[in-house]
Design a protein around this nucleic acid. Structure first.
Lengths: 132, 132
DNA sequence: CACTTATATAACCTATCAGTTATGCAAGCT
DNA sequence: AGCTTGCATAACTGATAGGTTATATAAGTG
């Protein structure tokens, strides 16, 4: 939880491409090519983004033949969440509508989350082996 | 919750000075001079940081004579929390220990946190697996 | 071995960032 | 009116971010 650590985590999250990569990885490991596919961007650009995510500790690099598949490392996200939550709780006292606001945000997205979760489950079953 | 919005929020949070300013504002409004006081940095530098926080919507500018006191605006933080929470929930299913980790993070002090995290890392490494 | 695939790295460009000093301006003070 | 306080803005600077193309490396394939 050093400041540097939080710096790197939040900075990594500040880019929409990187957030999309994390979202993709939430449903399982992926190679660089697979991660690059949805973006109108060169492969080296994606490799750079991945490097940023790795430096922040959000993502791990594996090896499988020539592939260097990435997966998620949840710990730094937990730290970032913890930081936000701490202040959120303080502000809850000052701003009573915050809780309601957050609930609202959560319910509007509940369906999306559930969909994603089902997706994850399906893929894991399909793969059969638990790489992680 | 447009991407731009999250970009600006996370980018604003990526700087330790700005996080410190937010922490300070969590205990009430403050003038620019008051906010600048703890930092070895010029007043214009602080004004710039405040501008970043305002563009992210995290902070509000009031007016009181010559003072331009700042207040917190909790909504963007709630959105950022929500984003993190969404992925945290997904990962909870994959990494069962995450919840415990987060609880521990919440209740331990800074130094103990670092120790704990090292411990977790060590355990993970020891478990081995194809990672790394 | 030569070829292909997957990825990383280097060199480069431009824009933005985080800081500086100097200056401007509005509001209160005497 | 003139001085002081609080803050913003402009102009500058060096570093970093985010992209590019070209090239290098490493591993599987025929």
């Amino acid at each position: 939880m050093t400041p540097d650590h939080l710096d790197a985590t939040f900075a990594a999250l500040a880019d929409p491409t990187r957030r999309a990569i994390l979202a993709r990885l939430a449903s399982g490991e992926a190679s660089v090519m697979e991660l690059a596919e949805p973006f109108a961007m060169s492969q080296p650009a994606i490799s750079k983004h991945l490097k940023v995510l790795e430096r922040a500790g959000l993502v791990w690099r594996g090896r499988d033949a020539q592939r260097r598949p990435r997966w998620l490392e949840p710990q730094p996200l937990a730290e970032a969440t913890e930081w936000l939550e701490r202040y959120r709780r303080i502000w809850e006292r000052n701003f009573k509508r915050l809780d309601a606001l957050l609930d609202e945000l959560k319910t509007t997205q509940k369906r999306q989350v559930d969909t994603l979760l089902d997706e994850v489950k399906a893929k894991r079953k399909k793969r059969g082996r638990t790489r992680r």
